[in-house]
Amino acid sequence: MTTPTEDLSAAGVSIWLDDLSRTRIETGNLQELIDTRGVVGVTTNPSIFQAAIGNKDDDSYDAPLAALATAGADVDTAIFEITTTDVRDAADIFRPIYDATGGVDGRVSIEVSPDLAHDTDATIAEAVKLWAKVDRPNTLIKIPATKAGLPAITAVIAEGISVNVTLIFSLERYGEVIDAYLAGLAQAKGNGHDLATIHSVASFFVSRVDTEVDKRLTALGTPAATGLKSKAGVANARLAYELFEQRFASQTAVELIAAGANVQRPLWASTGVKDPALPDTLYVTELVAGGTVNTMPEKTLQATFDHGVITGDTITGNYADAHQVFDDLAAAGIDLADVTQLLEDEGVEKFIASWQDLKATVDTALAAAPETTR
C-alpha cells in the first residue's frame, strides 16, 4: 500500500512545505516531514517569518536576537541575519535531495523585501545580496511578478541565480514571466553561465482566485453565477499549465533547453482551501501533472497524506473544460483581468503589512534584550 503523498510524488508532483521556522529545523520536524510525507522543498514568505519569529510560544529566536542586540544590529540587519540563517540551515537539510535530483528539488526559497516590489534595481540588488549571504546552490530567490519584478527576474537569472517567481495570478502575467525567464537564460548563456545550474519555478496562486471570484459571483446571485462558484482557481491553474506546455515548446525555449537550460516549472501556491465547504485537498488532487510543484501549508499536507485521492493527471485532459469556465465567467460578468490585478496588488500589500509586523516584533525583541548583554 502506498500513501496519497507517495502517489502524488509518483505522479510527478514535487511536494514542498509552505512554512519554515527554527523550531522545525532544530527539533527534527522538517526532517520528519521529508522522511514521512515526501516533502522535497520549502517555500517561505514574509508572513511565514512573521508567524515564526512572532510566535510567543517559540523561544528559539530569543538567544540569536539577544546576540544581535549585543552586536548592535538594527532591525533590518537582524531580520536579514535571522531569515538567511534559517534558510541556509534548511538548505543543508535538503542538500541530499538536491544532489539526488540534479538540482530539481531540495530547494528552499527566500523572498526579497516586499517593500521593493515596485523597484526593479533594488530588487535585483537584494536578490544578489540574499543569494550571496545564504551561499547555498539549492536556494531560490523569490521575486514577485509585478511589472517592476519582470526585468528584475531577467537580470537575476542572467547572473546565474535561481529564482522563484511569486504572486502570479493571471495568464497574461504568467506569459510575461516565462518571457522574462527565457530572456534571462539567453543573457546568462551570453555571460558564460552553465545553464544547467539555473533553476526556476513560477508560483501560480490558486485559492485566492476562488475567494475573490466567488465573492463576486455571490453578489450577482443568479443561478448561473452560483453554479460557477469554486471553479475559477482550478481552471486558471490548468490553463496556466497549458500555457507552460505551449511556451516551452517554442523555438526559443527548445534552443535554450538544447543548450542545457531547465524549464521553469509551474508551482501551485495558495493551496490551502479557504472555503470550509470545499474538500480540503481540492487544490492538490485537481492539479496533478508531471513536472509541477505543489507548495502546501502543513494542514493541507497532512490532509493530503490522510485522505487525498490521487487519480493521476487531472490537468492536461481538462483544458476544454477550463476554457469553458472562463467563457462562462465572462458571460456572467466576471472581469478576470480586474480580479487578478486586484489580487496582485493585495498580495503585495499583505506581504508589506506582514513585513512591517515582523520589523515591529524584532524591534521589540532587540529592545528587550537584557542590558547586561549589550
Rank of each mutant, 00 (worst) to 15 (best):
V288W: 08
H307A: 11
D275T: 08
G291K: 07
L278N: 13
L287F: 11
A277N: 14
H307S: 12
E286K: 14
V284Y: 01
P279G: 12
A289P: 00
G291H: 04
K299C: 03
D275R: 12
P276K: 11
D306G: 07
Q302L: 15
T285Y: 02
A303I: 02
I310E: 01
D280E: 14
Y283W: 07
V288F: 03
L282P: 00
G308V: 06
G291Y: 07
D280I: 02
G290F: 05
Q302G: 04
K299P: 07
V284N: 01
P279K: 05
E298H: 05
L287P: 10
L282M: 13
V293Y: 14
I310W: 01
T285F: 02
L287H: 00
G312Y: 10
L301G: 04
L282E: 09
T304L: 12
E286Y: 09
D280K: 07
T285N: 09
G308F: 00
T311I: 07
D275W: 11
L278R: 13
T281K: 07
T311H: 02
A289C: 06
T295V: 14
T304N: 03
H307M: 05
L301T: 00
D280M: 02
Q302V: 15
P279Y: 06
L282R: 14
L287T: 01
P297S: 10
P279Q: 03
E298W: 05
P279L: 11
T295R: 10
T304V: 13
E298C: 05
N294V: 10
D306W: 09
P297A: 14
L282S: 03
P276W: 11
T292P: 00
A277R: 03
D275K: 11
D275H: 09
P276C: 01
L278P: 04
V288D: 02
D306T: 15
T300R: 03
T285P: 01
P297T: 05
M296N: 13
L287N: 04
D306A: 14
